[in-house]
């Protein structure tokens, strides 16, 4: 339990660190939300100064940060100047869509990568292994944006999936089942892009972990005694190869979230990505900071889940058993 508490405390400190960096970087960034108003002769400088004061932007950085922390503790995360609403509810309405996209992509990524990595390792040097090596190398080498644009163009050209948005314009008129199908159809393209990009890395990691275990002499000893494939897999290979894979799970969630920002913008998925991008362009700084904090929170959540899974799967983490060497 103390292990989890330690991780939790570390996570909270990390979030505090991220928030400080966010404030420092947004302070250093040129321009502000009210810059466009300055070029409008109908808005007086006094009005702009009044608006800045109303949103507390005339205060020193430390004061603004203190007010933001207080607001964060009240679950508001500051106030959006553009939307004229507290940031947290605004972000949460979009974060639900990001979570739907990210979690679907995550389940599929691991559902595909684990068996493929296992298979490639078991049939090392075979046709499937080589095919996976070539395809994953290509997918890693090509930038995600190129893959996303190519798939978007393909989907649009051949009308394979709906392009843009989360639902069709006639969504409200559809029955429950048709609404579900409509969301799945819109979800398909961004999920395929994310799964392709993320699986390429995870398959290689799983393959490497499994190969390392398969080469261990205790596996060879067990094989020498004629151990069954099932027993070898579930008693020796999977439990030992699971540790690096589970650790990767937390990082993969972070990768999927950062990847989903880009994919959401390209595919027009109404998640955090387009909202944070718009807020960045318009200098709606509390929305930008809130978006980054949400991403950091998701990443910490993913790592926490990975830590709990590691604790369950590996007793040495619970007991803190040391290697005598």
């Amino acid at each position: 339990m103390s292990y989890l508490v330690r991780r939790l405390v570390r996570g909270i400190l990390l979030l505090a660190g991220v928030s400080v960096l966010c404030f420092l970087f947004t302070e250093m960034a040129p321009g502000s939300f009210f810059d466009e108003m300055r070029v409008n002769p109908q808005i007086s400088p006094e009005t702009i100064a009044g608006l800045r004061a109303q949103h507390g932007l005339d205060q020193p950085l430390v004061v603004r940060y203190g007010r933001w922390v207080k607001s964060a503790l009240h679950a508001d995360l500051g106030y959006s100047i553009a939307y004229n609403t507290p940031v947290a509810p605004l972000l949460w309405s979009r974060a639900k869509n990001t979570l739907l996209l990210t979690l679907t992509a995550m389940v599929l990524t691991w559902g595909i990568s684990l068996p493929l990595g296992l298979w490639a390792a078991a049939k090392r040097g075979g046709v499937l292994d080589r095919a996976i090596t070539v395809i994953s190398s290509l997918l890693i080498a090509v930038p995600e944006i190129v893959i996303a644009l190519a798939l978007l163009a393909t989907a649009a050209r051949w009308r394979l999936t709906p392009v843009g948005g989360m639902v069709s314009s006639n969504f409200e008129e559809l029955s429950g089942w048709e609404q579900f199908r409509d969301v799945v159809a819109h979800l398909t393209l961004p999920v395929v892009i994310l799964v392709l990009c993320e699986s390429a890395v995870i398959v290689r990691h799983v393959r490497a972990s499994v190969l390392e275990v398969l080469g261990a002499s205790y596996v060879q000893t067990a094989r020498g005694l004629g151990i069954s494939r099932g027993r070898l897999l579930f008693r020796h290979v999977l439990p030992v190869a699971a540790n690096p894979a589970i650790s990767l799970f937390g990082f993969s969630l972070a990768g999927l979230i950062s990847g989903s920002m880009l994919v959401e913008v390209i595919c027009g998925w109404p998640g955090l990505g387009p909202l944070v991008l718009d807020a960045t362009f318009s200098r709606d700084l509390y929305v930008v900071i809130g978006g980054i904090m949400f991403s950091a929170l998701f990443m910490l959540g993913g790592n926490m889940v990975a830590d709990i899974m590691l604790m369950v799967s590996d007793p040495r983490i619970r007991t803190g058993a040391a290697d005598a060497g």
Binding site: A216, Y218, G224, V240, P315, R316
Partner: peptide, 13 residues
């Protein structure tokens, strides 16, 4: 068979 590498000769779990 008894292998050289005592570390990898036992399942660490």
């Amino acid at each position: 068979m008894v292998f050289q590498d005592a570390v990898t000769s036992m399942n660490p779990r």
